[in-house]
């Protein structure tokens, strides 16, 4: 049965989840860059130009990715199952989205730094001697890209873990938030996103334990999968 005329079984078509999230990230990243440069320009008219205005965006971005990830797990994966897809298929799309957002988000961050530096140079702004930010080399841009990619991956995994915990265990799911934050803080990326925003490049890039961060991502993804694999859909 089921006539083929209406068949739409192209599993290679682009996922709306991927396209929507990537598009939103690019739009938000662009908007944040414009705002960051605008702040630098306006403030520099009255006082010393702030260094690292783009870094403030870098501090917010991981939280954005965590929320998006949690939303996908909490809202979209159940919708996938309700539409006849498996939990595994939903989980795989969640992971693919995480990889896409981490890579593209990190690229946006790196490009943002380069543009901001160019903007400072264009305005002929002075900068503090201790700010190594202004001596960014192409090598350090690669480091920044890697650093952000890893950070985004950790926060995306964290968000998914919390999202599925809240979906599956409702009120008890809130316990997952301190657990996830404690686990993520093991990576040493915690200071970067939460406490110390400015000067992070100098202070944190060399000290991030990449191996530990990867282990945390894998562990959070594994725990997320264990909760997703036989999760019951809530009643509407």
């Amino acid at each position: 049965m089921n006539t083929q005329s209406s068949r739409n079984n192209d599993r290679f078509s682009l996922s709306p989840m991927h396209t929507d999230q990537v598009l939103m990230l690019v739009i938000l990243g662009g908007a944040c860059l414009v705002i960051a440069l605008g702040v630098v320009f306006v403030v520099s008219r009255f006082t010393d130009a702030p260094s690292f205005s783009w870094a403030a965006v870098g501090a917010i971005a991981p939280w954005y990715l965590a929320v998006i990830s949690g939303w996908i797990m909490f809202v979209m994966v159940p919708i996938y199952v309700a539409h006849g897809r498996t939990r595994q298929a939903g989980f795989v799309e969640w992971m693919q989205t995480g990889v896409l957002l981490a890579v593209i988000g990190a690229a946006i961050m790196g490009v943002g730094y380069l543009i901001e530096r160019g903007f400072y140079n264009l305005l002929g702004l002075e900068k503090g001697a201790e700010d190594i930010y202004f001596s960014i080399s192409s090598g350090s841009i690669v480091m920044i890209f890697a650093h952000y990619m890893l950070t985004f991956a950790v926060w995306f995994a964290l968000g998914g873990f919390v999202g599925v915990s809240l979906y599956r265990f409702t009120d008890w799911g809130w316990i997952s938030i301190p657990i996830a934050l404690a686990t993520a803080s093991l990576t040493g990326l915690w200071n970067f996103t939460g406490v110390s925003i400015f000067g992070f490049v100098r202070r944190l890039v060399p000290t991030v334990d990449t191996g530990l961060a990867v282990v945390v991502v894998v562990c959070l993804c594994y725990l997320t999968w264990r909760m997703v694999q036989d999760m019951s859909l809530r009643n509407p």
């Binding site: 209406s6 739409n8 079984n9 539409h83």
Partner: peptide, 9 residues
């Protein structure tokens, strides 16, 4: 989304 997720949509 239904068009993407449902094979016989």
């Amino acid at each position: 989304y239904a068009a993407y997720l449902r094979p016989n949509w």
